[in-house]
Structure formats: structure tokens, C-alpha cells
Amino acid sequence: MEFGLSEDQRLLQESVGRFLDGASALERVRLAADGDASVRAEIAAGLNELGLAGIMVPEAQGGAGLGLLEAALVQEQLGRHTAPAGFMAQAALASIALQNAGSEAQQAEWLPKLVSGEARFGIAVSEAAGAREKAGVTAGPDGLAGKALFALEPDRATHFIAADRDRGLHLVARDAAGLAVRPMPTIDRTRPVAELVFDGVRAEALTGGNDASATVQRMIAAGRVLLAADSFGAAERMIEKAVDYAKEREQFGRTIGSFQAVKHMCAEMAARLEPCRSLIWYAAHADTAEPGEFPLMAALAKSHMAEVGTFVARTATEVHGGMGFTDLMGLHYWFKRIGLNRQLLGGPEAVRADAARLQGFDRAAG
């Protein structure tokens, strides 16, 4: 069997790429990183016009009815352009949560609002992937209490979908009494994350009857695939920029691309990155085609791409020499994006430990 993209999938990715060529040009990324919220809002509006907010929502609710592979192709372009716009939480993770854990009434109410952009969702499930700093949310008779770190896409969210310590899912309005949304600074200034602090917050539990824990696991796996796709797009672009620079920069009367050491650096980056493409695509494909394999394949794709992305980010910067550290080249936007992706929803060590548990290796070791 030959596995490759269909014509429609290629057209989707090309359309998103053409839009981002202008909407997320480097000078606009700089503006967003310096705090210009209008750039992020304009890109988000453009993605909605392309119908991407509802990419994974069934056609019956007004969406495109596509899958995680198509979402990964979009995310790859967002990483390639260091686009300062949210996509993953709204288009994929919120859709998965509502479709799998929401009741029919909740789906009927919220999925059309997700598609139209009337409701914009941030996602707080990081503690289910690995709690830190005593973080975690508990659900009790007085509402939600505790804190959730690294909530995704909080800046424009009208609502949050949060997981509690028992892996139940809750829909919370941003302006709910007792909820504080606190920005969390990271190295990547183009994509904000937040700390959510709950103090007796009334929330709407997603009560669709499906296993909420399985839904949270699928959300984390989908998020890991999309982070890997984002890093792949960023790394691919860094290689291209390194190669272009090596063809132009001269030292000792020759372009540096003619030096064997530079050739080897560029070749090794390409050789390490290219196999990641099929790994990420297969992991995304497994979401619906091989659901039993999906969490494992997502963990493998995320952990491997985190290491390869780090290597590419470092090596591409080295090819540029001292210029690689200047804002003029802008490499730091891709470098920092890959760095944040490495840690969100679990660093490579933690994600590989998840992969080991999924395969029973932890029991064998014991």
C-alpha cells in the first residue's frame, strides 16, 4: 500500500501556506511578538474564513468533517510560518472533547458556535499529561478548585475546557466567578499560554456518557501529534533558510556552502528530519484508522520530533554563524517555537515514559 497525501489534502496545505505567506510574514511575526494583538486576531480570522476552525467538526454541525491528519497538515504550515495564531486548541482538541465527552445537547449547542467562531476555546489538560508544581483541578459540590498550568490558546478564548484530577472534563466561561486567567511567560512570545486558577468556579461538566478518561487521553495524543507537526514545519523552514544562507554567504572568496563541513551539517539536518514526516503523518492517520495504536504513535512522534527539532534548530543557527543570533535573520522565532513545543504536553523523556507504559515495558522492568 502506498501512503501519501490525496490531491485535496495537498490543496488544503498549499492554500493555508499561501495565506500565511503574507499574513504571517516575518515582519508581522515581529509585531505579534512585541505585543500587537491585532496580528494574531487577523490571522485567526483568516483561518476561520478558510473554514479551519471546524476542520474536525462533522458536516452535520457545519464543519468540514475532516480528520487529525488534515489538522496536522495545517499545523505544519503554521509552524513553518511561525504563525502567531491559535489553531490546535480550538480546531482539534475542543472538537474532540465536545464530540467524545459532550452530550447530544452540548454538541448541538457548542459545535456550531465553535465552527462560526462565536465560541473560542482554550484547553487546560496539561496536568493529565504530567502534573507539576502541585497543580491540578478538583471538582466538588462547590465547583472547581485548584490550578491548571500551560492552558493553550487563552488570549482570545471565550471558554475553557479543563480536565480535573479524575480526568473529567468541564466547560468554563472565561468570565466565570472565581476564575483567574494569569499569563505564563515562555521563550516563545508568539503563542501565549496561561495559568488558570479556580476558586469555587461553577462549570458545565461534559456528560456525554463516553469514557472521559479516554477522551482526555485522545486529546493529549492529538495535541502531541499537532505539536510534532508544528515543530516539523518550523524545522523544515530552518533548514531551507540555512541552505539559502550557505549559498549566498561568502568567506575566503567562496560561498560557505562549498565547504564540506557546512555541506555535512545541512545534509545531516535533512537526513534526520525527513523520516519524521511519515512518522507524524502515520500518527495522525492512526487517530481514526488505528485508534488502539494512536496514543503510542503520538508519543513516539512527539518525543522523536522534539529531539530532532532541537538538533535542527541548533545546527541551522550554527550554519548562520554569528548572524544566526541576530533579530535580522529572525531564526530565534523558529528556534523558540521548537523549544516550547518540546515541553508542552510533556518533554521527550516524560513522553517516552508514557510510550513505555503503553507497551508494558514498565511492568517488564519491574
Rank of each mutant, 00 (worst) to 15 (best):
51 G>S: 06
114 L>C: 09
258 S>I: 08
33 A>S: 14
47 L>I: 05
17 G>A: 10
264 H>L: 10
208 G>L: 02
3 F>S: 11
106 Q>V: 05
156 R>I: 01
333 Y>Q: 14
136 G>Y: 09
133 E>Y: 14
65 G>S: 09
181 V>R: 05
31 L>K: 15
289 A>T: 12
291 P>V: 06
334 W>T: 02
289 A>G: 04
125 V>I: 15
166 D>L: 06
218 R>E: 08
197 V>G: 02
251 Q>K: 15
34 D>Y: 10
301 A>S: 04
350 A>C: 00
219 M>D: 01
116 S>A: 12
239 I>T: 07
317 T>F: 03
221 A>F: 05
247 K>R: 15
338 I>S: 09
255 T>N: 13
175 D>M: 05
260 Q>H: 15
238 M>N: 06
5 L>M: 12
14 E>R: 14
300 L>W: 03
25 A>K: 13
53 A>V: 01
96 I>R: 02
1 M>W: 12
344 L>P: 00
328 L>I: 09
328 L>A: 14
333 Y>S: 12
306 A>S: 15
46 G>C: 08
304 H>M: 02
132 R>P: 00
12 L>I: 05
153 E>Y: 04
198 F>K: 13
187 I>E: 15
296 L>C: 07
233 G>N: 06
330 G>D: 10
174 R>E: 08
66 L>W: 15
54 G>Q: 10
182 R>D: 07
21 D>N: 09
168 G>L: 02
139 A>Q: 03
138 T>E: 13
88 M>I: 02
315 T>E: 13
219 M>F: 00
358 L>C: 07
135 A>T: 11
152 L>Q: 13
51 G>Q: 06
220 I>D: 01
64 A>G: 08
71 A>I: 02
65 G>R: 09
226 L>G: 01
288 T>G: 03
156 R>A: 14
207 T>M: 06
280 I>D: 01
291 P>F: 08
85 A>I: 06
210 N>F: 03
35 G>C: 12
366 G>Y: 08
217 Q>L: 07
230 D>W: 00
67 G>H: 13
78 L>M: 09
260 Q>A: 15
355 A>M: 05
211 D>H: 09
350 A>W: 01
154 P>M: 02
225 V>I: 06
